[in-house]
Design a protein around this nucleic acid. Structure first.
Length: 982
RNA sequence: GCGGAUGUGGUGGAAUUGGUAGACACGCUAGACUUAGGAUCUAGUGCCGCGAGGUGUGAGAGUUCGAGUCUCUCCAUCCGUACCA
């Protein structure tokens, strides 16, 4: 073999490792550049070919920036807390720390194989105590903060307490949903518990009974983004609503800043829009409706105050306080019916409610509200299309202007007053925000926009509401009933949560016997024996010692997966700092991430939470920037090609009794036979019969009942051809299976393109390909596959093309005996042109992250050099430097052979592009007549438009095409095109 | 429903500011070398046509001397999200 990639690659991997070639130093006269990948969760399946896609891209870019003279930070780590390790632990009893360690080792091996230029000295693991110490510290800081809306930032809770002590909460403008007022005296009279209850309304993390997505199968609570279509993201188990005491993050306080911050980020519109929608800002107004014969007032939020005269009924969420418990407004007559309705609604999980979008349900409460302007009586209903968790949990229904209200009104025969001038609402609601308002007292003849403004003015004048902004974003539940996560630095003194002081962090995850919840339904940490806090000794002690005097119970929940990943980017900049998350110098030097590469699936999870924490940490002086990721590229998913075999379920009859039937389901039909099953039924049936007869000689009749498909391991399949013998050998269940083959003796599988997953047996690991073609080939091939941001099915068909390119280049600079050989002669003009064209193309491609066309540029260049038989040092050397970001091992090898110090190619400089080599004496102008290209003329460069026109008009060929006509106009773009308009 | 994308040969995909559509690669066809080829090299390869030529970027219109690219309408596929008042 002439290009011995295996030898070359292991040589350079070793060299880089031993020489720490890619260590990044804090502080340098060079400009900085921070390239970051979303760190992986180290799953048991190892890396598949989709994982490295983004890493390869970021590595190419990091190496490119190094050549361009930047001090590059390019770290890697592991998001190593998570559910799979825990579930594995539940099944096998293996400690998650153990499996996590093993998985990380495997990941590291696989990553190393690919020649990444990570600075491994900066590795972080979210599950290591040295790291989660900081996660715990941030939690404490959040607890110790409130959001001051005057300064528009988070501030220490102490300042709020001082304020309460001085003047109560009357003059404060804080982010909270607490709406009672107290004076300084009243504050001082409250006991510790009462004070803490109030403070919890302000703290940025707080305990609350909240409706949570409870997953009975996993025995845990899930965040909204961990629930997909009413099922858990992991495992797909059903999720129901449950009220639990949970830690929550007051992310809502940051709604506006999270929205604003998007403006200055260089992210795709798609992700920005997803975040905008998630935050869901809407402008409108609150309006208070009095209730007849009651002192209760129903507050609603509406984005359409202009439609206030179209209100014909009101709807409360079934969970609304006014239809529950003491403050109930339901009349005696309807109490029973309302209770029934609520019971039914509560039984429905979120999923059921969703799937019943079209089903309209509701119940009249017997109560009436009073319209604030017309004074009319408005019936109050409850209905589950109104959500308790959005707005005030109550709506003023305007059936003529909102389709849902319209449907509700039609269904329950409620009036639908029309308040739009010249609009027909007999079929459906008119929900456009335009038109003229009618039948609306003081709003008549106003446009929607004017009426909106006018109504808010009137509402505010009457003091029954005010202009208001509402956000869809909800506070993030932060507790998980799991073992394998960060423990909270929290203990409970008589039910009051207390933070453990910074000096005693980290609070290390205790050992447990079982990873399942306890019998009482406590989280797994409830199984820990050594899990109580001695507040005097400041130490974790045995739970037996709990006396609630000096020894207290510790929090049993752990933190969610997104905790550790919300600040890791900052930790990389100063990973060994034991005093702070990162020192000021490191923060100031590296700043935020310049380029972040990862999947778009984290749009409303990780990417939102990381932004939230960053803004918070900036407020509290921990970080120096308020957006973590300046530019982001979202790589597409690499899909797998699954192979499936088609299974027949056949009913057979082997006796004379027609009712004596048996079912067999171990017959498999080759794909092409299956597709011919309809057309050539008899022939295929005959084939099946022949096979059946072998096993059932007594067979009288048979009938195919159904056909289904089963995933099988793609390693047993080659070009859709199943290796039947190996399958039978490997899996016992197929030992006695019958495979009905094609005429040529093969068994063809069906296939489908879908997400790679262990359960579909379609995972392609990079290992085999690295073995067969080398890491450089795989790196280039993954880039060559197509635009980085596009999802695409994995397909190895084209890999030989990329491999050939490297072989070709190798041969170009080696003689027949595989000895390195370059010419020291001056290169030809053509060769220089080819080189400089490539430099320019490559640089442009890299700057716009077009990695696939970059690979093509190399191929074109090498093809040209091969045609020119050019192996001049002056061409090869810069070309190798260009190539070093894509194919680092190959390039290092040649670089050394060219006489440079080993391992120095990464820190040489990117070749300078010189336009002079591209300048041609002549340019082939396409000449078109009326826009149609007819001929090409070669003209010297440097002529102006007029001269070009003159020259072309004089040509015989031109005259032929003009056929004696005089052109109306001649368009000449020097260096580009000549067009005659006839 | 709403939001975002994407539609180009047999296939993956190029075409950066409107200026020679299909670069590059796979595949395929033919040939050379070879004991052999899943090695290497040469030529060809959008479609129709012997050819001149015609035609061609999901469909239809428009702007322009000129449109894959800009505008409008529609269709298809994928992703995200969903009773948000």
């Amino acid at each position: 073999m002439d290009y011995n990639f295996q030898e070359i690659e292991s040589k350079w991997r070793k060299h880089w490792f031993e020489h720490k070639t890619f260590t990044a130093f804090n502080g340098s006269s060079k400009p900085k550049f921070y390239v970051l990948d979303m760190f992986p969760y180290p799953s048991g399946a190892g890396l598949h070919v989709g994982h490295p896609l983004g890493y390869i891209a970021s590595d190419i870019f990091a190496r490119y920036r190094r050549l361009k003279g930047f001090n590059v930070l390019h770290p890697m780590g592991y998001d190593s807390f998570g559910l799979p390790a825990e579930q594995y632990a539940i099944q096998t009893g293996q400690h998650p720390a153990h499996t996590t360690k093993e998985n990380i080792a495997r990941y590291r091996d696989q990553l190393d194989q690919l020649g990444f230029s990570f600075d491994w000295d900066r590795e972080v693991r979210t599950s290591s105590p040295e790291y989660y110490k900081w996660t715990q510290l941030i939690f404490i800081k959040l607890f110790d903060s409130w959001y001051n809306q005057y300064s528009d930032q988070a501030e220490p809770i102490q300042t709020l307490i001082e304020h309460f002590e001085r003047s109560g909460n009357l003059k404060i403008k804080a982010y909270t949903e607490y709406n009672e007022h107290f004076t300084a005296e009243e504050w001082m009279q409250k006991d510790e518990k009462e004070q803490e209850d109030i403070l919890q309304e302000f703290r940025l993390t707080y305990l609350a009974d909240s409706w949570v997505n409870w997953c009975p199968a996993l025995g845990t609570v899930l965040a909204n983004d961990e629930v997909i279509n009413g099922k858990s993201e992991r495992g797909g188990h059903p999720v129901v609503q449950k009220k639990m005491r949970q830690w929550s993050m007051r992310i809502k306080a940051y709604s506006e800043r999270l929205l604003d911050g998007l403006e200055k980020l260089d992210w795709t519109d798609s992700i920005k829009d997803q975040q905008r929608n998630w935050i869901g800002k809407s402008l409108g107004s609150s309006v208070v409706f009095e209730v007849e014969n009651s002192d209760k007032k129903i507050e609603v939020f509406t984005t359409r105050p202009d439609t206030i005269f179209g209100v014909s009924f009101m709807v409360l969420a079934p969970e609304h306080p006014f239809v529950n418990g003491e403050s109930e407004i339901t009349t005696e007559e309807f109490k029973e019916k309302v209770k029934d309705y609520q019971k039914n609604a509560a039984l429905k999980s979120e999923r059921d409610r969703q799937s019943e979008v079209k089903n309209i349900s509701g119940q009249f409460t017997g109560a009436y509200a009073i319209h604030p302007f017309s004074g009319k009586k408005i019936p109050v209903w409850i209905g589950d299309y109104v959500l308790a968790s959005y707005g005030t949990g109550a709506v003023m229904a305007v059936p003529c202007g909102d389709q849902r209200d319209y449907d509700f009104a039609k269904h329950f025969n409620l009036p639908i007053p029309n308040i739009f001038k010249d609009i027909d609402i007999s079929e459906k609601a008119y929900d456009e925000k335009s038109g003229i308002i009618a039948n609306s007292d003081f709003l008549n003849d106003l446009s929607v926009k004017e009426a909106n403004k006018k109504t808010i003015e009137e509402i505010e004048k009457k003091n029954i509401g005010k202009g208001k902004t509402n956000y869809r974003l909800r506070d993030a539940v932060f507790s998980r009933q799991r073992y394998w996560g960060e423990p909270f630095p929290v203990y409970y003194k008589n039910g009051i949560p207390k933070m453990i002081a910074k000096e005693y962090l980290p609070i290390i995850l205790p050992e447990v016997e079982k990873y399942l919840p306890t019998e009482d339904g406590d989280p797994p940490l409830g199984n820990a024996q050594i899990w109580a806090w001695d507040a005097k000794q400041n130490a974790i002690v045995d739970i037996e010692q709990i006396d609630n005097e000096t020894v207290f119970p510790l929090e049993l929940n752990t933190m969610p997966g997104w905790a550790g990943s919300s600040f890791y980017f900052a930790r990389y900049t100063d990973p060994n700092n034991e005093e702070e998350i990162a020192g000021e110098d490191a923060l100031n030097y590296w700043g935020n991430v310049d380029l972040y590469i990862g999947g778009s699936e984290h749009a409303t999870g990780h990417l939102l939470y990381a932004r939230f924490w960053t803004k918070f940490l900036k407020d509290r002086g921990v970080l120096t920037y308020d957006e973590p990721f300046q530019k982001m590229i979202n790589q597409g998913m690499i899909l797998g090609r699954s192979s499936m075999i088609l299974r027949l379920t056949i009913i057979i009859n082997c006796s004379d009794d027609p009712d004596f039937k048996e079912t067999v389901s171990n017959y498999y039909l080759s794909k092409n036979l299956f597709y011919r099953l309809v057309k050539e039924k008899d022939r295929i049936s005959q084939l099946i019969l022949e096979n059946l007869k072998i096993e059932y000689p007594q067979l009288k009749s048979f009938d195919i009942m159904c056909i289904d498909s089963r995933h099988i391991d793609i390693s047993l399949v080659n070009n859709d051809n199943l290796n039947v013998a190996e399958l039978k050998n490997k899996l016992a269940e197929f030992k006695s299976a019958i495979f009905i083959l094609e005429e040529d003796g093969t068994f063809i599988c069906d296939n489908e393109v879908e997400k790679m997953s262990k359960s579909k047996f379609n995972v392609q690991t990079p290992d085999d390909l690295v073995k067969k073609y080398g890491a450089d080939t795989l790196r280039m091939y993954e880039m060559f596959l197509g635009p980085l941001e596009q999802s695409k099915p994995w397909d190895t068909k084209g890999i030989s093309g990329v491999h050939n390119f490297l072989k070709k280049l190798w041969r170009l600079i080696h003689d027949e005996n595989n000895n390195f050989s370059v010419s020291d002669e001056k290169p030809t003009k053509e060769a220089l042109k080819s080189l400089h064209k490539t430099i320019k193309k490559l640089q442009d491609d890299l700057e716009r992250f077009s990695f696939n066309t970059g690979v093509s540029a190399f191929m074109i260049c090498v093809n040209e050099l091969q045609d020119l038989k050019c192996n001049n040092r002056e061409i090869i050397e810069p070309l190798i430097v260009l190539l070093s970001s894509y194919a680092p091992h190959f390039s290092e090898e040649i670089w050394e052979k060219l006489g440079h110090d080993a391992g120095t190619i990464s820190y040489t400089t990117f070749p300078e592009f010189d336009e002079k080599y591209l300048v041609e004496d002549n340019h082939d102008y396409p000449v078109s007549f009326n826009g149609k290209m007819r001929m090409k003329v070669s003209l010297p460069l440097g002529l102006n438009a007029e001269e070009i026109q003159q020259k072309v008009l004089e040509m015989e060929e031109t005259k032929k095409w003009l056929e004696g006509q005089t052109p109306k106009k001649v368009i000449v773009v020097p260096g580009k095109i000549i067009n005659f308009v006839l």
